[in-house]
Computed example of a mutant assay.
Amino acid sequence: MDIEIGAEAKDKSFNRRVAITVVALSIFMGLCGVKDGNIVQAMQQAQSDGVDAWNEYQATKTKLHIDETAQTQVRLLALSAGARPLAAVDVEVLRLGTEIAKYKAEVPMLKARAEGFSARYDALNVHDDQFDASDALISIAVSIAAVAALVEISAALWASWAFGALGVIMGLAGFLGWSLHSALLSKLLG
């Protein structure tokens, strides 16, 4: 009977380690999921702002082109009308010149702003990938832990811990802003 109690105690100890593993990894995965959701929202906002900024840049470039063309046409029409341009033509050429100067000043700022949103999106995407990798690795770890509990093989629990540790590292990289990024994992999962 002592042998049976010892075997039963061993099973409980092993199952406790499995249960603690599953609970700890599940809690960490839940926290990572919340942070990842916030990152995805920030990515969507950056992408939306970037699209708006690129549209504004493109519209300004179009207005610049239209005004440059209009200015050239006004000058050509004035030249074909006679040697001396009319005062109204001078005023229009001056007005168009002012608009052209304004657009030329705006274009580099709008481009830099749009590129900034693109860079923000890319930076956030790195952390999103880290949380995705963490989620995948921890899911694998929990699955292996479940199998370990069923078959009661310590090697399976160790494998679960290895995958769990990698998942926690990737999750911490996302939380702490580390530049740790698995290109292989992203390529496989992306």
Rank of each mutant, 00 (worst) to 15 (best):
D52P: 10
A70G: 03
K61H: 01
Q41S: 15
A42W: 10
D49Q: 12
L64E: 04
P85T: 00
M43E: 09
T60H: 02
K61R: 07
V93S: 01
Q45N: 08
L64W: 05
Y57R: 12
Q73R: 13
A78H: 01
V51D: 12
Q45Y: 05
A81W: 02
I39G: 05
A42V: 07
A88E: 10
G50S: 12
Y57K: 14
A78P: 01
T72S: 08
A70L: 12
M43T: 02
Q41A: 15
A83R: 08
D67Q: 06
E56N: 14
A53L: 02
S80R: 14
T62W: 03
V51S: 11
T69N: 09
E56P: 05
E68D: 06
D52R: 15
Q47C: 04
G82H: 01
V51G: 05
D52E: 15
G50D: 09
L77Y: 03
Q73E: 09
Q71S: 07
G50M: 08
T72K: 10
H65D: 14
A42D: 15
R75I: 11
R75H: 04
Y57G: 08
Q73P: 01
Q71K: 13
V40I: 09
Q44A: 14
M43L: 09
D52W: 12
I39E: 06
R95T: 11
R95I: 04
P85S: 00
I66A: 07
Q41H: 11
V91K: 15
I66N: 07
W54Q: 15
G82L: 01
D52G: 15
L94D: 05
T60V: 09
A78F: 00
L76N: 07
L64I: 03
L64R: 08
V93Y: 00
D67P: 01
Q41R: 14
R75K: 13
G50L: 09
L94G: 02
A88C: 04
T62H: 04
R95W: 01
E56T: 15
Q73L: 10
D67A: 13
L94E: 05
W54V: 13
G50Y: 08
E92N: 06
Y57C: 11
Q58S: 13
L79V: 04
A70T: 14
Q45V: 11
R84M: 11
G82N: 01
N55P: 13
Q47N: 14
R95S: 13
H65I: 10
W54E: 13
V40R: 06
G50C: 10
Q73I: 10
L77T: 04
Q41K: 15
A70N: 12
G82R: 01
N55L: 15
Q44D: 11
E68V: 04
D52S: 15
V91G: 01
A70R: 14
V93K: 01
A46S: 10
Q73S: 10
K63E: 10
S80A: 15
D90P: 02
T62F: 04
D67Y: 03
Q47H: 14
